[in-house]
Each structure stands twice: as C-alpha cells, then as structure tokens.
Design a binder for these strands. Sequence first.
RNA 1: GUGGGCGUAGCUCAAUGGUAGAGCACUGGACUGUGGCUCCAGACGUUGCGGGUUCGACUCCCGUCGCUCACCCCA
Length: 444
Amino acid sequence: MPRFSPQPQKGFTDFFPDVLRVHRYVEEHLRRSAELFGYEEYDGPIMEPLEIYAAKSGEELVREQAYVVKDKGGRELALRPEMTPSLARMVAQIQKSATRPIRWYSVPTCFRYERPQRGRVREFGQANVDILGPDSSDAELEIFSLIRNFMESLGADGKLYRIRYSSRRYLDALLEHVLGVPADRTVEVRKMIDRRDKMDAPAFEKWVRDVLPENAIADRVLGLRPFADPATPPVADVPPAFRESAGYRELVEFSRKVEETGLAGVAVFDPTIVRGLDYYTGLVYEVHDVGTENRRALFGGGRYDNLLELFSNEPMTGTGFGMGILTVKLFLETYGLLPADVGKADRKGALYVACANAAQRGYAFEVAATLRREKLACEVDLDFQKLGRQLGRADGKGYGWAAIIGESEARDRTVTLKRLATARQETVPLADLPAKLNDLSRGS
RNA sequence: GUGGGCGUAGCUCAAUGGUAGAGCACUGGACUGUGGCUCCAGACGUUGCGGGUUCGACUCCCGUCGCUCACCCCA
C-alpha cells in the first residue's frame, strides 16, 4: 500500500474541532450582526462558469488564480474565487419581484490559487454582506454601522480598527481638476496613489515622473499628501470645477453624514483607498487594523452600479463588502480578543455516563437514551471497566456531570449523579434524572 | 514568478563533527465502584529526501522537496 502524506493540500485547511470552533466563533458573530440589521442569508453554487468571473475581473487573473474544472460536457467551471458574480446572477432572477432594498449576506468558502502567506490561503471563508437597490449613501452608512456592531460584538473598540473610505468619482475629479492628470493616465495614477505607502520614495518618484513627463503635473502628484477632510484637499488653489463635480459633492456629503451618525470615531476619509479593480463605481472602503501587525485589509467593499449587467438589462446599484474570516481571526488573536476557552467544547451542562461493569451496559445506554429524549446532551464511556479512567476522561472533556452506574444502580433503576467540579454526589431515580439535571443546571 | 527563515518523537523544542534527548500529550500500572495531584513504566525516530566531505554527519557542502514570512498579485 502506498503511504500518502497526511497533510492537506497547500493553502487548504484541516479544521480540527478546536480550530473549527474559532472559525465558527467569527462566523457566528458576523451572522448575528447581519441578522440584527435585517439581512437574510443566501448561498450559491460553489462552481460557476469560468466566463462570468473572466468577464468581471479580467482574463489574466482568472487564468492564473482560478481553480478550473472541466466537466464531462467540456464546460469550464471555476471554483468560486468570490461570491459577487453568484450574488448578481441570483439577484437578476428575482430582480422584478423582490422587495427593495435587498439585504443579503453569505459566508461562502472561496478558492484562489495564490501563494499562501499570513492571512492568505487558497481555500478561505469570506463573509459577504450586500445591500442592493438604494442609490443613496445611506446604504453605506448602514453598512458601516453593521461593521461597527460586528467589531464591537467581538470586543474590538474603535481604537483598534478603522473603516477607511474614499470614492472613485472623487479621486477621478481630484486627478482631473486639481492635479491636471490627463484622462488617459488616470487609471495608472490611481494605482500610484494606492501604492504610495508600500513603496520607497525614490522608486515612487521615478514611477511618477516616467508616467507624467509634464513636470508641473508630476510635482502636484508627488506633493499630494493624505488629508483628512475631503472638502479641503491640501493644495493652494482648488478650482471651482472640482467643487462642482459629482464626485466631490457626493463624498463631502457622505463625510458629513458619517459625522452626524456618530460613526466618525471609526470611519475616516482616506484618499489612498482605491480598491483593486474597476469593479467599483462609487464609494469604496476597507477596514484596517490600526497597528502594523495585520497589514492586510480585514474587509474590503464598495459600490457597484453595474452589478447585474451580465445577467439583466435592468441596472441595479448596490454596495457591500467581503470579509476574510481568517484575517479577522488573526486580528482578534493579535489583540487577545478571543475568549480563552473559544476552542473548547462547552460541556458544563452535559453529562458523562460512566458504567463500571460491562454487565450493566444495557442500562447505561437506557439512561443515555432517556436523557437525550429530554434534549440533555450526554456521552457514554464505552470502556465499561475502570471507573477512575472514565471519570478522568469526563473531567478532561469538560463535562459538568457524571452519572455513575453499577450493579446497585441498575438493580434499583437509579444513577449516582456526581458534580465533577465539587465531587459531590447523590443517588437519583432514573425517572427524576432529567428534571433534576435541569434544576441543578439552572441553579448553578 | 522573486527573496529571506526553518525542516529532529503526535506537539513545542534541545543536542556547538563523537552513543539522538527533554517537556507536554498518549497507553498501562501503583489504585478490582470514584477523576483532577503524585510516582513508576511503556510506546513513539530512515534527524524531510538524495548525494558529497569525513575514521565518524542531526551538525559542514551541493541538490531537491516541504513549510513559513515577505515581494508580486489580491475579483
């Protein structure tokens, strides 16, 4: 027999029970926050035709990073690298009948063939929360509130993270009217602004001057520093055309709303937020750790106006984010926000059936069945000898109670009910056991 | 695709060219129906793999594979 490696594929994860519990902890908090805001859970196929990703996100990325499967009909399917195209497809089906806004969330497993590193693996859980229909930035306000609620529920206050937002339209207006960047180079200059902090200064300057040989423009781009208030970019004279642009007005108004809503503590304008692809058309946002430990964005999102264009003639706008379960988990670990017992099963109210003699195993199973009928969790030790070992296992697994069974208990149809933490025990008739356990658990 | 770090028991790690070890975990015993503590014992290894240098390699050299961190990218 050949021996295979017990390790999972690179970038894939074996979720052992203690690891899975941590994962679920993050997921469940997200679900709870989403439900609190009225969002409904959906899910879609784990594979979609390759083309719908290619159409959305560019051929090259898809070829390099998609897991592609050819089915028996010769169709090329991709393991979903993201949820949004499936969301769009599904929404297109119910677009005419659904009550708006559509508030949906999902917690899919997604796949990307990339080189793994901290916070990034090939198979990953990514929560998605989207609100579709309203074109007002009140939708973004709601999304920001939801993010704050989620982070607070995990014990992260506003000092530990920031929602940083900007807008495509604002940035384009800034480039056009304030910096004078020619239209044919806005895409690349956007990229520069996104990249500035990640490069060393001379390399950045060289890049800028290569792309913008006009010195005056290059100087203005190089002189642009991050600034806090979108209404006042730090340049000598702001042309009126900029202040009249839709991008300017939209973002300044949104910034004001953020203040009014009391979100200013966690949400800040940041002109360097650009977001990777051309996907987004309006407000964009990312959530970051304020520290340097976790440089990868915890959340990324934005507004898309053309979401449904692949599937429907009728446009629909929306905004939403994706959030990496793993990145949030790393964030929580960094700040010690995971409860100490998050990886352990909670069995404080559960009972362990310890039977000292194989002759009474039938009665032991009957006791367990009786409890389970009353929705009381219990586990039967299958050793049927060595009571000491059995109690040791019960303790090791964190059980709150043990039911000890031997000859006399089986004869009298009782159990010896023992509280493991205190070692106190008493004999209880089987018929009274469920009620007794419920009473004691409530009292403790 | 590029670069750094690391590969020794299930896990965390020692062993500076000279007999491969410890702690934790596991199994059993001390203790035949009463756990956590303690003590004793056991099982666990092709030192990632292949080659080279050497009387002798976990140790040094070359290659290779794997893991990891960063770059690239990040729908």
